[in-house]
Design a protein around this nucleic acid. Sequence first.
DNA 1: GTAGATTAGTTTAGGGGGTAAACTAGATGG
DNA 2: CCATCTAGTTTACCCCCTAAACTAATCTAC
Lengths: 148, 148
Amino acid sequence: MDKRLIEAVELFEDVMVHGTERVLKSVDSPIWQEYSREQLQVLKMISKSGAMPAGKIACLQGVHKSAVSSRIKKLEEKELIQIIKSSEDQRTKLIKLTKTGEEVVRQSDQAVYEYVEKLFSDQMTDDELDQFVSTFKKIREILKWEGV
Amino acid sequence: MDKRLIEAVELFEDVMVHGTERVLKSVDSPIWQEYSREQLQVLKMISKSGAMPAGKIACLQGVHKSAVSSRIKKLEEKELIQIIKSSEDQRTKLIKLTKTGEEVVRQSDQAVYEYVEKLFSDQMTDDELDQFVSTFKKIREILKWEGV
DNA sequence: GTAGATTAGTTTAGGGGGTAAACTAGATGG
DNA sequence: CCATCTAGTTTACCCCCTAAACTAATCTAC
């Protein structure tokens, strides 16, 4: 049992499992108060990859289709998305961002950027930032889930 | 606007915000099916720091006291914790692990260890592991919440 | 000492997240 | 044409969370 590995596991657990929750609570943009993380994630995915059916969202978020069903209903009520019946297959519903939805994504990105920038730029040296980038790239690769 | 910083923010968001969820779903120990993350976190905290009052748990978890109130009720029903009235202050309830609770913590730790080990040891070189440890130490320090 | 304020924890209402299973309605294919 | 498959919805039930109202114990200050 590698001693460094034990340390790594503990760090992983601390930072990833427990730390992330605290971070998310600290991002205090009005956007993050108003919409849930999962809702913003849906918007972000669509913004990145374009309109997609509900089933694909469920798959990407890794949750049951019924969870997505209620989620998109809420997002539609908030007028952040628009549901379009596919012309090929009448069963599938293509989820598209509205103008408002696009704006929300922009604001959310902005909030995250400002938060992390504040966190990092004061407290990280140039070298540490380089190391951060290469380590996190590696982790993303290891976890290899397709880009949200 | 530092280009590397933008990359760092994106990585941070991908890995921390969205990646953690996926990781947690992949840890498929029966323990993680049976008890929620928050419940296990309570057990872990007590196991690390010893018996503590409900209020302190709420504070450490960063949630409302009412959330903890219902949580410890569930944990008591499952016989993982034991609630002891403090002798000094009749209002406070000291939360202590039972033998079963200790065992659950042990098993949860084991599950996480095995999962992360499997993830890392195959896919990380020695140098990368070193870099991981130093980067994550830095992040933990920056986020500086006291050790769960 | 006793009244008022504070503190620890509970309860309830309401809203987020999730699943599984039953269901509707289109698509497909023997 | 009818059985089967598939996309999405609904329902019942679980966990998470908060805010606000509540109980009960402890302080504090007159």
